[in-house]
Write a protein that binds this DNA or RNA. Structure first.
Lengths: 244, 244
DNA sequence: AGAGTGAATTGATCTTGGTCAAGGCAGTGA
DNA sequence: TCACTGCCTTGACCAAGATCAATTCACTCT
């Protein structure tokens, strides 16, 4: 059971599970499995019956929905430390979106039935899951606000601010975590718009971009440019709380 | 304690409280009070410490946030059967938005401390609150999708479809629940855009509008016009579940 | 009935981002 | 090294919705 120990060490401190007694954690992990997936692999499809949910150890997963007329809307891109499909337990046992591997990923696959069962047993688990859901809620709230009020360059700046360690002074260098096209879809814009908006952002805030690496000369300047049209002060409240 | 009985009868079957044992309900209502408020009354402000949360018995409440540069973004408009401010319990005891009476309203004001205490005691309450939060989540998901993919006339049509009893055949007549300006802000558009989009909708789907009353000749035609750009079939899943 | 108020409509113009088309650039594989 | 592929960028044009300004409409108050 070496694999199980690895899984346990990675997952037991994840947001929805903190503070749970060990036997509940064991119950949750009863049917867990560590998996590796290649880019492009489809994990599940919107409205399919949900038997598994997942925890991201490494890599990136794209969540999206498809409309009747075929358009694809990206819901989120999840990285290490995030869960996906876990909310199906409260939503008639169906997935609320489709999920596809965006960059080669290592996942823990878990059983939704186990989650349901343990939720019924453990009050602690229910409470931390509640906190987790509330955080998700807040995150979506901000997403709605951002999409409504921010311009394309501001949305990119906001994305960058969330990448950099905000406590740092002076010049900071970061790397875009995945393709620009994917970032664009994550931010709800077209690749062309992303490209142009990034150019504008360079002019306006003095950042420098070469390939995937971004040099932010003054975090302050980025904040001034972006956070005016936001209802909460920077650093954003949801930054410290991870898990999708 | 006549007032308490009135309150209890109205609130005990609300989504987050269903299936709770009577003593827990009593605990929740310990510091409850029935209130009447005039239009324009500010209930609480974004990021203020949250001591009360509310249940809407009658009327309409506007939820919104204000950005640093003064723009107001409407989060939602809540009617009878909805809660507001209840999520503060999981969000560091702060309100996630400001709330203002949009149309003369009757509310039950409840104590967040009591909610917190009872959540700690009752596993049932935690579980139904969890379901409630999941529904909210789904609702927000749809909101994001709609704002991204629907045109202004489609958003209005979607709003109308949610007003009419969808099972009805033939011509249906509804009434807009509040001012057009308010509906516009709820749908994230300007009043002018709303007006023009409504005209277009009249042409395209044959609906008739006079003042606040709307005559829908064919619900089917409205669906065809709107639901193409949506990822879930009509009738939308979230329709049956109320409570904001 | 008439004045006054706020909501709603309409027109003209502008801005943002989307769409379509054409290249450019970087990494891969023979 | 050279083609091939996919990602990214750039340009020209378009469409949706925002903005600004001017009425018009509906309702209340006197």
């Amino acid at each position: 059971m070496v694999q199980n120990e690895i899984i346990e060490s990675r997952i037991k401190n994840a947001a929805p599970f903190v503070g749970c007694p060990p036997d509940i954690i064991q119950g949750l992990l009863k049917n867990a499995a560590l998996q590796n997936h290649k880019k492009g692999r489809l994990l599940f499809i919107h409205e399919d019956p949900a038997d598994r949910y997942y925890f991201v150890v490494k890599g990136w997963v794209k969540l999206f929905r498809e409309t009747l007329d075929g358009t694809q809307a990206v819901v989120d891109i999840l990285g290490a430390g995030c869960f996906l499909g876990e909310k199906s337990v409260f939503q008639d046992g169906e997935y609320g979106y489709s999920a596809e591997i965006a960059e080669e990923a290592e996942l823990v696959s878990l059983c939704t039935q186990d989650l349901k069962a343990e939720l019924g047993k453990s009050h602690e688990l229910a409470l931390s899951m509640l906190r987790h859901m509330a955080d998700q809620n807040k995150k979506q709230d901000m997403e709605i606000e951002h999409r409504a009020l921010q311009t394309a360059p501001q949305r990119i700046a906001c994305f960058l601010l969330r990448l950099v360690d905000q406590s740092q002074k002076g010049t900071v260098i970061t790397h875009l975590p995945y393709d620009k096209t994917l970032i664009a879809s994550r931010l709800g814009m077209q690749p062309e718009t992303f490209s142009r908006a990034l150019s504008k952002l360079k002019q306006e805030t003095g950042i420098k971009v070469r390939g995937a690496s971004v040099e932010v000369e003054s975090v302050e300047r980025l904040k001034n440019y972006t956070c005016q049209t936001c209802s909460s002060d920077f650093p954003c409240r949801d930054l410290l709380k991870k898990s999708g």
